[in-house]
Design a binder for these strands. Structure first.
Length: 129
RNA sequence: GCAACAGCCCGUUCUAUCGCCACGAUACGUUUUACGAAUCGGGGAGGAAAGUCGGGACAACACAGAGCACCAUACUUCCUAACGGGAAGGCUCCGAUAUAUUUCGGAGACAGCAAGUGCCACAGAAAAUAACAGCCUAAGCUCCUUUUUACAGGAGAUGGCAAUGGUGAAAACGCGAGGUAAGAGCUCACGCCACAUUAAGGUGACUUAAUGCGGGGGUAAACCUUAUGGGUUGAAAGGCUAAAUAUACCGGGGUUUGAGGGUUGCUCGCCCGAUCCCGAAGGGUAAGCCGUUAGAUCCUGCCGGUGACGACAGGACCAGAUAAAUGAUAGAAUUCCGGCUGAUACCGGAAACAGAAUCCCGCUUACAGGACUGUUGCUUUU
RNA sequence: CGGGAUGUGGCGCAGUUGGUUAGCGUGCUGGUCUGGGGGACCAGAGGCCGUGAGUUCGAGUCUCACCAUCCCGA
């Protein structure tokens, strides 16, 4: 299912605060990923936060565009990560931050996101073995 | 037909696949409400949503009053819920055309320096009381000379004057005549300006004409004066539900002889009035609903008005998110740019400015391209 | 959403009530002292005062609009 509902987004202020204080981080240019494991009884295994800083893109239109493209790519490719987590019976939250001042094309974006999801699985395996 | 200027309006479209947000309907599950997932239906950024520069609506608190501050505005009339906005008009200045002055276009924070105070660098005698240089010394005073013995001449003191001073952004209304010892709006004619009165036109600003009185440097985006207006706060307003608890303890100060609070900033006055303020330290919560989208609303027609705009009739319901929806990809069309060409075709690239957050009316700023209207110029055809 | 501050040589800052030629420290360039470096001394360059209008005889300064940066308020 290539959906992206409210339950799949990270909305709780408290959770966000904890994530930024205690989450594990890695970089895949031009992104920065912060993730952590949580206890939850939601039917969706992952909650995600997408952020594009005002520091890199001054105009709201540009920020919206990048955020929407990231969301779109994630929506289409997330099944990989979902299947893995469902097998492990784990829940996870992560934030994906765009940390560069230039645009990249949609196809490049797609490649990067797939790399990120693969890396997340790897990191997750390392942590819980 | 082309070009320039001004005004006004629009501001990409279609298809496929996969999504997001709220609403309505249907049947289903848990079953009191409500919630959950499913299907269907129609809806989902802008002319500036931006800057947050004005003004409102709305909400809470306050609302015997007086004075002083403070802030805003500033030609007139009208429009508007209101405005620092808009319309029409007046005046001043600038540009063009013809050169009496008219016509066209543009700009103007456009009340008052003749209410007071301040400031005006350098230069210059002097930047506003008129001083200095200078000119004159008539009348009256002192001395001297000559002698026709007083009418003269000279010097001094005393007094008068604002013409001359060529510097400056700016020089004591301009210019001419009279007048005088020398001079001066001191007087007069013409002209400029200010004020007052009257008459005519205009709702009015104002215009034209006459009479009277008068002479004034500039600067209020200098202080200020005058007139008018202004209660404070701001959706983080405010209301409700849920959850959670502790005015702990310590230090300082005040107090029924009136502390403290409210009343706009202050003073007076008025009202309430018995645990009140400050510091330090600590405990709990920080989740959701209403406000929140039907309104100074939008569309069409017609009428009134020079116009901004208003009245009437009919129709429509048109975003409501909240770590924040309104999208992504692919293809096609349309427009523009570049390459190539005699021209099409073809290839490549681009599609402006920009994203609602309580709502509305303005202003300002950004903007690819296009449509319409008007004026002016050139050209072609009839 | 509301309120406020700042913008001046490369960098950090002064600049009064509009006035003649916009200063200071540091850095830069050249020279002198030294055998050389450091250091000291001397000289010099470098500014349309964030941008654009307006008021004024004359704006870094006054007024308006815009741009950028920063801060405060739950």
């Amino acid at each position: 299912m290539q959906t992206f509902k409210k339950e799949e987004r990270l909305c709780k202020k408290k959770t966000i605060k904890i994530l930024f204080e205690e989450g594990k981080k890695f970089h895949v240019y031009p992104f920065k990923i912060i993730w952590m494991d949580i206890e939850s009884d939601s039917k969706y295994p992952v909650r995600i936060l997408i952020s594009v800083s005002k520091r890199f893109f001054k105009k709201a239109v540009d920020r919206n565009k990048i955020r929407r493209q990231i969301r779109e790519v994630y929506r289409k490719n997330k099944s990989l990560f979902y299947e893995y987590l469902s097998r492990q019976k784990k829940h996870c939250v992560f934030a994906i931050l765009y940390t560069d001042g230039a645009f990249i094309t949609f196809k490049e974006l797609e490649k990067k996101i797939i790399i990120i999801l693969q890396r997340l699985i790897d990191e997750h395996e390392k942590t819980f073995k």
